[in-house]
Design a protein around this nucleic acid. Structure first.
Lengths: 203, 203
DNA sequence: TCGGGCATGTAAATTGTTACATGATTAC
DNA sequence: GTAATCATGTAACAATTTACATGCCCGA
């Protein structure tokens, strides 16, 4: 049985035959919103999938470069993917260093804290903008719709999730930033009051 | 230098001296919203931190049970934590099997797809409710506020992030479910229209 | 009496990262 | 000329999971 990464690869080569290099490009930071992995993990996994008969490749020779090995899914691979996709997913830890740093935030100087958060916020704001741009591009390239029957549905679904996640992230960063800012008089951290407050809204 | 897990442990024992078992309890599925790890990883890491002089423990003997080793952070540990917390975090992959399954969703039967999504949605809805209950409990136990100076600020910040993340997740699941449902006539997947649609709202 | 919680640890296996290895091409 | 992109792969290391190992107490 393939690993999760193996299934991620199967899903991608099922959409379109491609090389390990292509896969690595799609699975890399910071825009790999589908599944992230490095080429050092991808090439061996592709080899395993091939040995198991779930993918097959054909080599395209190139001048002065290693040949491109374009991998395609086999019928057995498709069957395996479909069968796996129907079963409940395994939960994985969502560990994020910033959560630890936020936990220790009150122990560091507020200058340092603001710098840290500002930088994070900017990075994730940029990533969000990039993702939204990709979404807009995807939508305009698919004027006939991106419903479940569209071949791009999978990409679209992953993108929407990535955008939602990123929005939550920037909202949280902004909340943290407001908490560490000295000028927080106007909007203090949780204090009992008669009016219920909303979770920080986005944008 | 400790690993990320090491710093997560430092942050927790900095709030309150505790045993490896206590740490494992807080870091376990499905409510470990801070950092997830199993005891098999925690005990060796604690031993490393102790050898490095960042934590120290004292053994509390118990009748008919291994002694509780209550670990506390040392001044050196506190310094190391603070110094690390001020530096920019390292990005980690946020890999989720459901994203792969969603990508392959159009390849599976709509019955199977709906079952899968319904189950996921329920699980995450429950988790969200549990997290919100914890937030309410935290808030009512801290009527004097949960701002940056509160000793519970770190927990509160982590909880807010977990709640936001879970809200996004259930919204995404609901969107997916609407996409696979046959009765989607009324609210089709992306189609060009003059009225802009919002990302599914929460609650 | 059976499962779960308490309480520690280690060992083996898997998964993921970083670095090593090669080498032409192209854009700045 | 220097860095980035293309294109493959392997090896050493680090992180994480799962299983092994022990054993009492408590509640259903």
């Amino acid at each position: 049985m393939p690993s999760s990464l193996g299934y991620a690869i199967l899903a991608l080569v099922a959409s379109k035959p491609q090389s390990g290099y292509d896969l690595a490009r799609q699975m890399k930071q910071p825009l790999g919103e589908f599944w992230q992995a490095k080429h050092g993990q991808i090439y061996p996994e592709l080899a395993r999938l091939e040995k198991a008969g779930l993918v097959e490749f054909n080599e395209l020779a190139q001048k002065s470069r290693p040949p491109r090995k374009v991998h395609a899914i086999t019928p057995a691979g498709k069957a395996e993917l479909v069968s796996w996709a129907s079963k409940p997913p395994q939960e994985r830890p969502r560990n994020d260093e910033l959560v630890i740093k936020a936990h220790a935030l009150r122990r560091i100087s507020s200058i340092a804290a603001m710098g840290l958060l500002q930088t994070e916020l900017e990075a994730h704001d940029h990533r969000l903008a990039a993702l939204e741009q990709r979404r807009a591009a995807l939508e305009s390239r698919n004027l006939s719709g991106l419903g479940i029957d569209s071949p791009r549905f999978g990409d679209y679904a992953a993108l929407r999730h990535a955008i939602g996640t990123e929005r939550e992230y920037v909202a949280w960063c902004r909340w943290l930033l407001a908490e560490v800012s000295p000028k927080t008089k106007a909007r203090p951290a949780h204090r009992p009051s008669r009016s219920k407050r909303q979770v920080a809204s986005h944008k």
